[in-house]
């Protein structure tokens, strides 16, 4: 089974890091294969940014996302570009405070996760990506929360472990609630 995940936002939101955490969680802390690729512009901050993860039980040939099962959108530009790219029945996570102009496709499962808002409550906007990752873990179940926790600890700067773990738990709980409310 092959699952394709796309993270999209702008530079500085930790989009690439999200992809790295998810793929590390899958291929190092679980027994699946994963590959992470990315696309970014010349800007370190701002500018559109995309990170892709392919997860599979079998060996992964094509490492890029072709027809995404899961899309995570964290900026208006990313929404315009990738908001409608998820395949039929796929999952789309949107940060509603970052994306105001919307025209959600019907054939996908949309989940609004106010990740930036939650991150601010936790203490720092910068961990919004980890909140999102928590929600994604809960909603999609593609990887265990324990594996993601381990991968987060390997990927965040020293001294920010607690902040990131809190962000992950908040996102995970939010995602669990959202998933529970839905019955489709």
């Amino acid at each position: 089974m092959r699952t394709e995940v796309r993270f999209a936002g702008f530079g500085g939101q930790g989009i690439i890091r999200s992809g790295l955490i998810l793929s590390m969680a899958t291929c190092i802390y679980s027994d699946k294969n994963a590959v992470q690729t990315q696309s970014y512009g010349p800007e370190s901050r701002g500018g559109s940014c995309k990170s892709e993860v392919v997860i599979a039980d079998e060996e992964i040939d094509f490492p890029k996302v072709d027809d995404p099962d899961i899309v995570m959108v964290m900026s208006q530009e990313a929404y315009y570009k990738y908001g409608v790219t998820a395949k039929k029945g796929g999952v789309v996570l949107v940060d509603p405070d970052m994306v105001t102009d919307r025209n959600d496709p019907r054939e996908v499962k949309m989940f609004d996760v106010p990740a930036t808002k939650i991150a601010n409550e936790v203490g720092k906007t910068i961990v919004a990506n980890v909140v999102m990752l928590g929600a994604l873990t809960a909603i999609t179940g593609i990887v265990t929360p324990e594996a993601v926790r381990k991968a987060i600890l390997r990927n965040v700067p020293k001294g920010t472990e607690e902040l990131n773990m809190t962000a992950f738990e908040k996102g995970y709980n939010y995602g669990t609630q959202l998933a529970g409310q839905r019955n489709d």
Binding site: L20, I28, T37, Q38, P63
Partner: peptide
Amino acid sequence: EIIGHMSER
């Protein structure tokens, strides 16, 4: 660039 920046096990 893809192979250079791609992450795998």
